[in-house]
Write a protein that binds this DNA or RNA. Sequence first.
DNA 1: CTGTTAGCGCCTTCAC
DNA 2: GTGAAGGCGCTAACAG
Lengths: 336, 336
Amino acid sequence: MTVTLAEVAKRARVGTGTVSRVLNGARNVSPSTRDRVQACIREMGYRPNLVARGLAASRTGMVCALIPAIGAPQHGEVIQGLGDVLHEHGIQLMIGDCGYQPDREEAIVADFLERRPDAFYLTGVVHNAKTRQMLRASGIPIVEGANLTDDPIDCVVGYSNFAAARALAQLMHRRGHRTMAFVASTSDPNDRIGDRLKGYLAACAELGQDTRGLVLESANNFNGGAAALDIVLHHAAPIDLLLCATDVLAVGAIFECQRRGIAVPGRLAIAGFDDLPLAAAISPGLTTVSVDRIAMGRVAGHMLLQRLAGRQSPYTKIDVGFTIRERASTGAGIAP
Amino acid sequence: MTVTLAEVAKRARVGTGTVSRVLNGARNVSPSTRDRVQACIREMGYRPNLVARGLAASRTGMVCALIPAIGAPQHGEVIQGLGDVLHEHGIQLMIGDCGYQPDREEAIVADFLERRPDAFYLTGVVHNAKTRQMLRASGIPIVEGANLTDDPIDCVVGYSNFAAARALAQLMHRRGHRTMAFVASTSDPNDRIGDRLKGYLAACAELGQDTRGLVLESANNFNGGAAALDIVLHHAAPIDLLLCATDVLAVGAIFECQRRGIAVPGRLAIAGFDDLPLAAAISPGLTTVSVDRIAMGRVAGHMLLQRLAGRQSPYTKIDVGFTIRERASTGAGIAP
DNA sequence: CTGTTAGCGCCTTCAC
DNA sequence: GTGAAGGCGCTAACAG
């Protein structure tokens, strides 16, 4: 039904090897035969079967990427950068959604490995022992992303969620905010959120805040932010800054403030984390931590390509850094 | 390096065919040999090579799905439903991001087809002639989604963006809104947005609005919504309802209203389309069109499974319907 | 430079 | 119920 390489070879009166060579751009083919073969390929509408190629070459040209939630714009951006870089090299992405669940991640890794991908991208740096073992045993390049660790499975490209949260808390302290609370999700526990919390606690310890260690837990959605606000307002010690582990929580809190007529940042300052498009659009603008996720994805892609080319790049850990965006929600640009 | 089926067969003292049979759950294997083989599989940690299986069986157990933007929650939900259903049948999804660009879609379809997927899911019902031709020629089941058409490539599951937009405009008219404008994105032209616009225009034609046909164009992001508001406010005929082609536009407009101190819905009512989580969270709540996208994805998955099972299901077009959610942004629940 | 020959790992008849 | 053998479509030596 579909035309095969052998048929092209017959039509072009050459061996299958030659067709394979022109297909893969080997240079040891005379221009004349190359042209003839390419003509046949075009005329016959030949399309290589990558499944067969993958089996023969034990290179599938496929990279698997695992993200905690397809549809989350943060991860989408990383995937976009990663996919762009890989695509330029004829490699395609197979994306898995592990829904913030480690055992689901393990199952997907197991499944995906049966498809013999050339490499793997994982979101986050904390994974099941079995997941790590499978990945290591596979022998293919692995890149973990969106956070940093000193003990990656293979290599890691990201930024320190810990350092970013700490820096944000410290900056807010310098800006005059004294009594702060931190709200994080419990619904989707993961290393990025966990490290943000730790960074906040570290800053508190260093600064000796009154409210040191005040931590709230809420589902990671708009309602969760609203719920946290409720607690903050009724807390014994008056709180003047709410640090949220994600922009979604922060925006939920801001919406709730609007509903209750609570001035932001006048009565309560609010900051987030992620710098979603929403953070810049909302009024007041949301102070948050920004990371160039597309660039991060691209770096991850280049790292994988390096490894795939056999080069053991000296970099096993790349920090892409972060930026704190101060906006009106914490008083930036507002006259005192 | 990795253990193969043949090695398992040798260890279990059976032929490769037998191992293959237990692997694929064929019933014509005696319980005793079945157990012995399964024991060996477990002991040796054998994992089948799906690339080889795909080549031999000409069934890859892979379905390709194309969405216009990975990271967009709407499409993420569809993929989630689709992936869930397929995964239960051991089928995995390969996701492509065509960025609202038809020629990119064409390129991705061409690439993906080389991997011999068992089926294809496409977002939207309008595609390149060449894309349609390639897909048809492939002979595999194709499902188009997120809209409806009478001329699908193979079959389609979605809802009528046209009918939904028209129903929304008509409902708003019944609620007393008389002079309305519609804003849609130009940056990402696609059939869903186009049909929403047509639905609005159809309603206008039927209702004989004063502002019949007032249509604005803006980039499909928060800023685009704000920009549209600017035009609406300066329009000669006073407009009392802004219908937005997407929730993102609508929310951008609401934010801008808040900045300018324009009462919503007092001075201007606003409605969106998509029912993102944001629509319910924002104040005022956003009136919008809601579709159960996860369910839509699941239906698409079942449709593909039907087709893959060889059953030519009588359904070639499934309408999953829509719901209009009236919220405060158009005056719902507000005393007159 | 180019044709030929083995496989890659698995499925699938086809006899036994 | 089970083993043996022949591909699936392609790549990768290996001769020439």
